[in-house]
Write a protein that binds this DNA or RNA. Structure first.
Lengths: 224, 224
DNA sequence: GGCGTAATGTACGAACTAGTACGTTCTTCA
DNA sequence: TGAAGAACGTACTAGTTCGTACATTACGCC
């Protein structure tokens, strides 16, 4: 945050802006993910921190700005994970399967992110749109898929006419649902979608479904 | 609601319990879907109705009970739609494809339902679980899929080992995502997933992906 | 060591929100 | 017709919730 170089901060410091700020964001992430934007309570967050409510407003100014900061934090983590993915050296079929499975893993490991995205959709992404940082953040992911699709069509492996954004939607749908809808699904079907005994099977399902779709087994009009 | 038979109510009646009750539920559905449980305002609902806030409490007793009544209403509509589906006379591949496409259509036509389910998941289905009506409501849908899967395995068309609940999850995932996540997806990828120009393609994608998965094109180890 | 400022704590207020007390009017049915 | 109860409206309250005024303390730098 501060631009000028400063001496290494003593470990047991009583005052530490970075640390306080980080803790506020961390607690806020949990509370917003757990209760929604309107349902999360600033006072409750304060009670869960080492510092006080005063500091939330000192650093973030308003509940909404804090919420946007949380969104920016979790989205930046996703983007970092995406940029670490390297599948372009793989053959198209294995590249897209691996991409789907890595997406599965990331979503599985970051349920708060999925919940916050769900909450943001309830509010029609009004807060997301207020953030300058978070515009067109999907471009890199779509670009990667686009290159894999081209290679797959060139090699003859892929036959569908879906574009990169369609494929991304499909992968996201399969990876997000089991986290986002786990509670209602559990109540209606008596199955905890996030239980360990289903994880490996669902992971494989995700990769297989995407590959099967792209290679064309489901087509009404077979290609040959 | 009332059990004893009563004479046909005059059309221009000034007082009409059924009508008032129905309008409250309708407005509440819209408001809860739009703002979430905590975000929806009882006073705001009242302002949007012909009657007053007093009536909300007269008929439903509390905000939470009203919310649960809304959940019961939309879920019962889904169940009614499901029970109207008749695909068991079709061959397995076409049966599952048609089921997926009809599910797509229903979700496409009832965005409020999907939003309410999303909201309910934020609250970990705590309200859903309070309703006696809404327990194990998934059984009929799972039963139908189960029969289609058995027929498909018997005929040799289906090769995956996913069970009925897995397949239902997959269909739901594909149908729900484009509605539930339309706003954040739109902001990040610049595409409105619900725009008419994508609808037919996504509908076909959904059916094809499910069929392709079940018929085994994506399998790591081909069956022959 | 002392000064300026960044960081922090306490206590409070204004506005909002779910829910209710109380009174009124319409409808039904004997 | 008239009584009883169902349906409805107004005005209010108690509690909550975001946000802030004001006071204070620690830290870095000269």
């Amino acid at each position: 945050m501060s631009t000028q170089p400063h001496p290494p901060a003593p470990a047991g410091r009583r005052r530490d802006a970075e640390r306080t700020r980080a803790e506020i964001l961390e607690v806020a992430q949990r509370e917003f993910a757990r209760h929604g934007y309107a349902g999360a309570r600033v006072d409750e967050m304060a009670a869960l921190m080492r510092t006080t409510k005063r500091m939330i407003y000192y650093y973030f100014g308003a509940k909404e700005k804090l919420y946007i900061a949380v969104l920016e934090k979790v989205y930046s983590e996703v983007r970092a994970a995406e940029s670490a993915i390297d599948v372009e050296h793989l053959a198209p079929v294995e590249a897209i399967r691996t991409l789907a499975e890595l997406t599965f893993d990331h979503h599985d490991a970051h349920p708060d992110f999925i919940k916050l995205v769900g909450i943001e959709n309830i509010h029609q992404a009004e807060h997301l749109r207020k953030s300058e940082v978070l515009t067109n953040l999907g471009a890199p992911a779509a670009g990667l898929i686009s290159r894999i699709l081209e290679a797959g069509r060139a090699s003859g492996d892929f036959v569908t006419d879906a574009d990169a954004v369609d494929v991304h939607m499909m992968i996201s749908a399969l990876c997000v649902f089991r986290i986002a809808n786990q509670y209602t699904f559990g109540a209606l079907f008596g199955r905890d979608l996030t239980a360990p005994e289903h994880r490996a099977r669902h992971r494989e399902m995700t990769g297989e479904a995407v590959v099967a779709y792209l290679t064309g087994n489901g087509r009404r009009t077979p290609r040959d």
